[in-house]
Design a protein around this nucleic acid. Sequence first.
DNA 1: TCTGGGGTCCTAGGACCC
DNA 2: TCTGGGGTCCTAGGACCC
Length: 420
Amino acid sequence: MFALVDCNNFYCSCERVFDPKLDGRPVIVLSNNDGCAIARSEEAKQVGIVMGTPEYMIRDLIKEHNVAVFSSNYTLYGDMSDRVMKLLASFVPRLELYSIDEAFLDMSELAYENLLELGMRIRTTVTQSTGIPVTVGIAPTKVLAKMANRFAKKKRKDIGVHWLGNDYLIREALEATDVGDIWGVGHQYSTMLVRNGFKTAADLVNAPEDFVREKMSVVGHRLIKELKGIPAIEWEFEPKKKKNICTSRSFGSLTQSKDVMIEAVSNYAALCAGKLRKEKSCARELIVFVKTNQFRTQDKQYEHAIRMQMEVATNNTVELIKYALKGLDIVFKDGYNYQKCGVIVNDLVPETEIQFGMFDQVDRKKNNTVMHALDKVNQAFGKDIVRFAVQRFDKRYRLNARFLSKKYTTDINEVLHVKI
DNA sequence: TCTGGGGTCCTAGGACCC
DNA sequence: TCTGGGGTCCTAGGACCC
């Protein structure tokens, strides 16, 4: 048996932990650049705020219902996530961190008779220790655990836990779940399945094998097995090494300036380099892309990406910035209103397995020492104190974040003050 | 008229996830 | 005025090889 534990409306719940006055009030959190609503409290869902709606389209709703609005604060959410995951890990021998707010727990070797009770204990412990409410779904496979979790949210609100412990309960959940609400069935597949007469998960579980194989490839085949209670999706108890790393952001406002983009691209390259070093990986390929805003039909549109192979795989900030700027030089064209740019590093290899070039002139050992020192200093200050000249400090391209809460848990200057 | 067969590797694009 | 960011996996088709 496996459990899927997920945090309810995670980003909103994080904001609420540090401001109890928000209890009972609709809360939403916006995507980067204060673009769209990406997290909503129950109250916000009830007043009709739809996931992914741009903020400017719901201003009336926000005003009318006194909705509390936040810019996303990933420093805070990341730290709260760590706390929740550490608690979850104390209940089971193994768990898989699935996303910032979800984990699969391996309950197969536990001696508990009643997993429902265990689920409830997990739930109270996490809520009491972190203030974050969670829901637990328990079932024989990942897909069914997801389904159980969803069922718990809809129909077991009182206890927040659901255990698909026998065939009857599995049947009930399958019948109560529309195909589009199955984990792994997105919009395209959902439309196709409904068109072919499959309405609920209970319909899909009996779909002919070759139909599923043809229309949904092996992904669909695995999905059906999982729905039947036969595990078909791999477990990853060890976090896998990343295969590519991307840093990209929209600009706070559209820009035509190459100067501004030089600054942005060098910062994104530096961020990629930092992420690479954290992963203990080096990249052999770097991609730079730029694009205009597709929603502005009145603007000339342009989108371009350039891939560059690097002679020796690297995670050195200076080198990656150098390549990234070379790339920008190629993709940048004058006269467009740019909305976004980004840097992707690809073809990653472990630091320890780098092939050195025969004519490589770079003193890599010295470079590594410098980068290591840079990471240490920046880590100690909690922000990028040490930077390279092109990165500048003024962030002329910076994102909008008008409703940002404090770094309550990671910055000593921003901890909560308590008056007694 | 009719233009092999079998294999690998790479890439772009599509689907999905949170 | 204002529409996120960061990933994974799978497949078809092209390039290339013998």
